[in-house]
Amino acid sequence: MSAGEGGITPADLDTASTLLRRVATVFDQRVVGQESLRTALVSTLITGGHILLESVPGLAKTTAAETLAAAVGGSFHRIQCTPDLMPNDIVGTQIYNYGEGSFTTQLGPVHANLVLLDEINRSSAKTQSAMLEAMQERQTSIGGVEYRLPDPFMVLATQNPIEEEGTYVLPEAQMDRFLVKEVLTYPAANHEVEILERVASGRQSAPITAEPVSLDDVRFLQGLVDDVYVDASIKRYIVDVVNTSRCGGPRPVPGLSAHVRVGASPRGSIALMRVAQALAVQAGRSFVVPDDVKATRHAVLRHRLVRTFDALANNVQPEQLIDAIFDAVPTP
């Protein structure tokens, strides 16, 4: 049965629910609150995509990435991006062995199941391009030889919205390659108290006791997402939303062109559908409902709308524009 056409049994959904609970248990041992972050990370993982995380320092971006790797039992590498980081530092290189008179290949840290690119906007454009090529092609080329990346493979890139001096802002075309962009906010007061209690008692640094899922389990979940049924009316709804972001659609938003210079591409349509399929699996359903699409709207579209100078000058947030777009499109 082709992808997106159903074929999921109740037993499959029960198995998926058990696996996702185990992932949540591991996540809760390290990260307090941040439910939307966990949902975004899990959705990205089981759709085979990549995620961009943005927040001020200290909001558990690195901790969340490490915890996700621990929850799925996969290999994890962290790359701290700096202006002098070179493509070979992340992809790998050939090393000459003087004793044998031959070259040996040293694979770079990108060859892992989960890769954290910390502060990606601090690396040069050449290094960003090398990493984004690996994300897209799922392989690296070293000395003319291609090396496949592990399966599953997921990149978690972070960027800091403050201290922009000396950074290399990701171009819109490269931002579009991230399935979602999650913006983290400060924790609630009760969650911050819980963080202090965990640190004081040592629980925050204690070994994780929950049982992780295997990489085969992750591949099972990814296959399940592929089989989630998406009705033709939902697909049309997604297309109408994306067309509306381009200042068109069945019911154009008045004045949107004054705030949006470039709307979402077809990659945005695909991302809306794929993340909605992932949310359906997490909700224990074998089909997508309109609320799944609406729930993903900010994370999927906020980095795909290119705002005009007037919108930037007047501090019109992309989330406001996305809400206006969804309000204008009739729900099926």
Rank of each mutant, 00 (worst) to 15 (best):
G249D: 10
G249F: 09
G249Q: 12
P250I: 04
P250G: 08
R251W: 03
R251D: 01
R251C: 00
R251E: 06
P252F: 04
P252W: 11
V253Q: 07
P254H: 05
G255W: 10
G255V: 08
G255L: 12
G255M: 12
G255K: 11
L256Y: 01
S257N: 12
A258E: 15
A258M: 12
A258N: 11
H259L: 13
V260Q: 05
V260M: 02
R261V: 00
R261N: 09
V262H: 12
V262P: 00
G263C: 12
G263K: 11
G263A: 08
G263M: 12
G263E: 11
A264T: 06
A264W: 11
S265D: 08
S265C: 05
P266Y: 07
P266G: 03
P266A: 06
R267C: 05
R267L: 09
R267D: 11
R267K: 00
G268T: 04
G268Q: 07
G268V: 06
S269W: 07
S269H: 04
S269Q: 07
S269A: 15
I270F: 11
I270R: 14
A271M: 06
A271R: 03
A271D: 02
M273H: 04
M273I: 14
M273W: 00
M273D: 13
R274V: 03
R274K: 15
V275L: 10
A276V: 06
A276P: 08
A276M: 08
A276I: 05
Q277G: 01
A278W: 11
L279W: 12
L279P: 00
A280H: 13
A280N: 14
V281A: 03
V281N: 03
V281H: 05
Q282G: 06
Q282C: 13
Q282R: 15
A283L: 04
G284S: 09
R285I: 02
S286R: 14
S286E: 14
S286T: 05
S286Q: 12
S286V: 00
S286A: 15
F287S: 15
V288T: 14
V288L: 07
P290D: 06
P290I: 09
P290R: 07
D291I: 04
D292H: 11
D292P: 05
D292Q: 12
V293H: 08
V293A: 10
V293F: 02
K294I: 07
K294V: 10
K294L: 13
A295G: 05
A295D: 13
A295L: 06
T296F: 00
T296H: 00
R297L: 12
R297K: 13
R297M: 12
R297P: 01
H298Q: 07
H298I: 11
H298M: 06
H298V: 14
H298R: 06
A299G: 02
A299P: 00
V300H: 08
L301C: 08
L301F: 08
L301N: 05
R302A: 07
R302G: 06
H303Y: 02
H303F: 05
H303P: 06
R304W: 03
R304N: 07
R304G: 12
L305I: 01
L305W: 03
L305K: 07
L305Q: 04
V306Y: 00
V306H: 05
R307N: 01
